[in-house]
Design a protein around this nucleic acid. Structure first.
Lengths: 109, 109
DNA sequence: AGAACACTTTACCATTTGGTTAAGTATACC
DNA sequence: GGTATACTTAACCAAATGGTAAAGTGTTCT
């Protein structure tokens, strides 16, 4: 099981619970993008994008870096992998226990 | 790719973004539980539990049924599987694209 | 019938969220 | 130096969230 605090999970799932933020993540799959490039495609103002980026950065999914007057945003592979592993482990655990339950129900009608 | 609306994903991730709700999900792995049995372990009042159950039910993760004066809560395997598949597909897509990116970066230093 | 039980509903509260506009700051260009 | 660019900050707003206490409703037990 991946080490990951409850608080990390809160932030991670919350970050992914908004469609605009998931869109930003999708946009960043192409690679690094300037903060200003993320607003127009989603009809958001720059301050709105900044808040979403802050949430994503707080969750560890995204990192940003300022070069000159431009703030570049990119996905953080490590954190993505942590998220992926936690999700896989958890859903597998759910599935296992649910299968055990359904097996039990079959054997005890 | 699993069919799953953006709105479904909002609800799903949001439902999982609270530690009390994840605890309720974990508690339900043992099987069906009465609503009242979910409050004491987490130091919540009954109305608080009801709100969390409503969020989980709205996301499709949990279903409830009233028998007599007791409301029983249980995990909904179908929805769990949908969630699991979506998460696996999405994280795989992320991983694929990130691997393509790192391969590109290796070949173009 | 009457009491006990297990929710349900209502009303209320502080905080957070997601968004805006407008003014401010730092960098790049002519 | 002065101007355009690209964020940043501040102030504000409506709605949602997570929680409570208290009163109400429907079942079950004696």
């Amino acid at each position: 099981m991946v080490k990951c605090s409850e608080d990390d999970l809160d932030k991670l799932f919350f970050a992914l619970s908004d469609p605009n933020r998931r869109n930003v993540v999708t946009a960043l799959l192409d690679g690094e993008k300037a903060l200003g490039d993320l607003a127009p495609p989603f009809n958001m103002t720059i301050p709105a994008v900044m808040k979403h980026i802050a949430v994503l950065e707080n969750s560890g999914i995204v990192k940003t870096e300022k070069r000159g007057r431009v703030r570049y945003c990119r996905l953080e592979p490590d954190r993505l992998e942590v998220a992926q592993e936690w999700l896989a482990d958890t859903t597998r655990m759910w599935t296992d226990r649910l299968m055990a339950l359904s097996r039990y129900l079959e054997e005890n009608p």
